[in-house]
Structure formats: structure tokens, C-alpha cells
Design a protein around this nucleic acid. Structure first.
Length: 310
DNA sequence: CTCCAGGGGTTCC
DNA sequence: GGAACCCATGGA
């Protein structure tokens, strides 16, 4: 068992915000998840000073032996309270967004699974993403316990040997081919994690986008969540982007900006803005400049399907 | 039955 | 370059 200073970390908000898909909430409010072959139960124990983050090992190395690994995963090595204070001070609209979920932390997730899960996430919704990822791990990941409940994420090598038909059980649609291409490149050493961490941002991004199915959005999410590239969006950049989003929308509709095809990632600020959008109930918004205007597409589709007039 | 879910590839102009 | 369309699924 490992106890860490949570520094304001909110597990529900962090695991539920759509940056990760393998943590499962338990009836008692704790969370079970597998990270890089380590299965743990996580909970915030009440106590003085915001309590303690408690990590109980379920399989793999005991968390107590790897405090740095877990502190890194939860980004506890960053002074998040100070970071949030800077963000709040720098932008009024952003302050409101942060207020909706101040306990969200951008996790540092394993590279390959982040890449694959965000390939799966495209044009998809969170419950189904979770289902596909679960089937993927359950079927092709290494079992971590005797109960058949905990599985590691499949390795690139395991996936690289498969054909698209072998992944039909995933029911992931066209994304299956993308997964295989990513796996084959990773297995062949064409997606070297350390290189991607060290490369200038634009180069790392371009390298990722060589993978079939990786566009701007998946690349950005992988850089941020899976490669710890905080520099992908240095403070001034994400502040400017978030600021532009909020100002453009007159602090009314940041989600419209975030839904734009290439502008989806506002770095560390992104999840707070999404939290704001969720709290505000965003669905009916007419996505400003989205991939294709909803009404338009409907009309076109209808017209195509029903060419005859009356 | 229709829409759509936090993309991306392809194919037009 | 931008715009339109397609891609497979499953839930509402």
C-alpha cells in the first residue's frame, strides 16, 4: 500500500473526464485500474489536509515499491495548486472552467496504450470506447491475476502479428486497421517512445501522424496524455488558445471552439474547459465550424437518400 | 428509423 | 486548401 499527498486530486473527475478509459469505479467509491502492467485500487482516504491518495496493489509490483512511478502517473510531482492559481489569475473565463472541476489532473499514461485508445476514441463515445478497450485487453492482454479479472494492455508485438479479421471481436469498425498499423510500427521500432519525448514538438507530432488514422486530434492527445509532452502546450500557448476560445465565444461557448477539427486540444486547460461545457450542458450548441455542420449534413444526407421530391 | 459520438482518409473542386 | 462524403458500431 502506498500513501501519497493528493494535492487536490479528484479521482472521479480525473478518471471520468475522458482522458483514460481503463479505470473502473467500484461500489465503495474506490477505483480499480491497470497501468503498465500494474493493477491497483485507488481511493482518497479522508484526513487532514485533503486526505491521502491510497494505492493498494492488486497485481504486479507493489505500489509501495514504486512511489515515483505513481506520483508521476498522477502528476503529483507538479505543483498543481500553484499551476491552477496561475491559470485562474491569468484568465477569468478559465477560472470559471477550473471551478467546475478543480481536481482534474492530466495523467501521464503509457505511450502505446494512449495512442491506441485515442485511435479508438475517434468518432466514438466514452462508454463504447471503454467497451472496446476492455475487450482488447481481456482478449489479447496478459492476465495479471488468477481470477481472470485483471489484464495488461496488449503489447505492440502481440497485436502486430494479427490481421484485421482477428480483431473483428472488438467491434471497433474501421479503427481495427488503425490499431494494427500503430502496433506494427511500434513493434518495428518506428515509434520509439524516448525519441518522441526528445524530439521537437512539431517533429514528434509529424512522426505520430505518419500512423494511419492519427490526425491532429489523436496526435495531440497522445503527445499530452501519453508522452508527457507538457511542452506541447506551454503555458503561454495554451493560455492564448484557451483565451481565444473563451473570448471568441464571449465566455459563453468554449466547447464550440474545442470541437473544431484541429483546434481540439488546449493542453492542460482542455479538460477544465470540457468540464465547464459539461456543467453548462453543451449538447444543443451549433458547433461553430465543426467538421461538418450538423444541419447541413442532415440535409445533404436526406437529399441523397431521398432524391425524389414529393 | 434517424441522429450522433470530443476524427481521419479520400475525393472532389 | 476547403468542403462533402464515407468509414462500423451501438445507444438514445
Amino acid at each position: 500500500m502506498l500513501l501519497l499527498e493528493p494535492n487536490g486530486l479528484d479521482l472521479d473527475a480525473t478518471f471520468g473526464c475522458g482522458q483514460c478509459f481503463r479505470w473502473q469505479r467500484q461500489p465503495d467509491g474506490s477505483w480499480e485500474g491497470v497501468v503498465a502492467g500494474r493493477a491497483v485500487r485507488a481511493a482518497i482516504l479522508p484526513g487532514e489536509g485533503g486526505g491521502r491518495l491510497c494505492l493498494e496493489g492488486l497485481a504486479g509490483p507493489d505500489p509501495a515499491l514504486e512511489p515515483d512511478f505513481w506520483a508521476g502517473y498522477f502528476a503529483l510531482d507538479l505543483d498543481y495548486p500553484a499551476l491552477l492559481e496561475r491559470m485562474r489569475a491569468a484568465h477569468r473565463g478559465l477560472a470559471g472552467c477550473i471551478g467546475c472541476a478543480p481536481g482534474i489532473r492530466v495523467l501521464r499514461q503509457p505511450f502505446f496504450e494512449t495512442l491506441v485508445t485515442f485511435l479508438i476514441s475517434q468518432n466514438n463515445n466514452i462508454p463504447r470506447i471503454r467497451g472496446i478497450v476492455d475487450r482488447l485487453c481481456r482478449t489479447l492482454g496478459q492476465p495479471l491475476d488468477g481470477a481472470g479479472r485483471l489484464y495488461a494492455f496488449p503489447t505492440p508485438g502481440r497485436l502486430a502479428a494479427l490481421e484485421e479479421a482477428d480483431l473483428a471481436f472488438l467491434r471497433a469498425g474501421w479503427r481495427a486497421g488503425y490499431i494494427l498499423d500503430a502496433a506494427r510500427r511500434a513493434a518495428a521500432g518506428q515509434l520509439d517512445e524516448e525519441a518522441l519525448r526528445a524530439l521537437p514538438l512539431a517533429d514528434a507530432r509529424a512522426r505520430l501522424m505518419e500512423v494511419r488514422g492519427v490526425g491532429p486530434k489523436v496526435a495531440d492527445c497522445t503527445l499530452l496524455y501519453g508522452l508527457g509532452r507538457w511542452d506541447a502546450y506551454p503555458v503561454d500557448v495554451w493560455m492564448r488558445r484557451a483565451g481565444r476560445a473563451l473570448f471568441t465565444a464571449r465566455v459563453k461557448d468554449p466547447a464550440a471552439y474545442l470541437n473544431r477539427k484541429t483546434g481540439g486540444c488546449a493542453g492542460i486547460a482542455q479538460q477544465y474547459i470540457f468540464a465547464w461545457a459539461r456543467a453548462a450542458g453543451l449538447p444543443e450548441l451549433p458547433a461553430a465550424g465543426g467538421k461538418n455542420g450538423p444541419q447541413r449534413r442532415t440535409l445533404t444526407k436526406k437529399a441523397q437518400k431521398n432524391p425524389r421530391r414529393d
